[in-house]
Design a protein around this nucleic acid. Structure first.
Lengths: 111, 111
DNA sequence: GTAACATATGAATAGATATTCATATGATAA
DNA sequence: TTATCATATGAATATCTATTCATATGTTAC
């Protein structure tokens, strides 16, 4: 830890370590996906399972359209994948990091 | 992976594995803090350093009030801590998980 | 004391977002 | 073909949020 106790910081030099806008933009969009209770529920129940839309809606007790909208966001951020079979569309997790991220988040809020 | 290819799921049983509202609410609030580019920049430059407010504002080129508002949110979610010294308030990271969370996020978006 | 500096905060505002409603698309069954 | 089921999507709306402006609080220097 760099304790200076003054404010004579070398601004120019420190600015070099600021991530570029594109990176913070992309990263914030990624975390925002986890920033909604409905999406967290969907991700949570898809853990180790493949479920179709109306079942997901029934489980978390939400309207089908609301779930579809959220699944679209989860698809676009590549957190879930889907497979069509007849009338049904089966969704499942598409990212190995999901469980780890949720675990770390839970650790923090339980501290 | 539980591939059923039908939708005859036991809704009642699956509902038991849905996290309670309080948990998804708290967890989503936690992740939402990471869902803003300005806060990500602040967390990023505080890595290994202790900086006062106006220096943070200079580094990321934002107004002091905007930074103060965001620091308040970071404080409330216990991601940063602060230490007052005279006129200055020095902020630093307060959570060991922060770097890990940012790293996982970056891994995902770079894939 | 007063001026200058550092930080915090309330109100206002513009932009983002989650849900609902209505409806479209696509598949199966009759 | 027609009805029904499963899913997706656009528009509308209510809520939330990030920034700015104005200003308050608190500290140091003079």
């Amino acid at each position: 830890m760099n304790i200076t106790d003054d404010c004579n910081a070398d601004i120019k030099k420190l600015q070099e370590s600021v991530p570029v806008d594109e990176e913070t933009q992309d990263l914030s969009e990624f975390f925002r996906v986890f920033g909604d209770p409905t999406r967290l529920k969907i991700l949570s129940i898809l853990d180790g399972k493949e479920l179709c839309v109306h079942v997901i809606a029934d489980i978390i007790d939400m309207q089908q359209t609301a779930v579809s909208h959220q699944l679209k966001i989860l698809r676009q951020s590549r957190l879930v994948k889907y497979r069509k079979n007849g009338k049904h569309v089966f969704y499942s997790l598409n990212d190995n990091h999901i469980k780890e991220i949720l675990r770390i988040g839970l650790e923090h809020i339980k501290e």
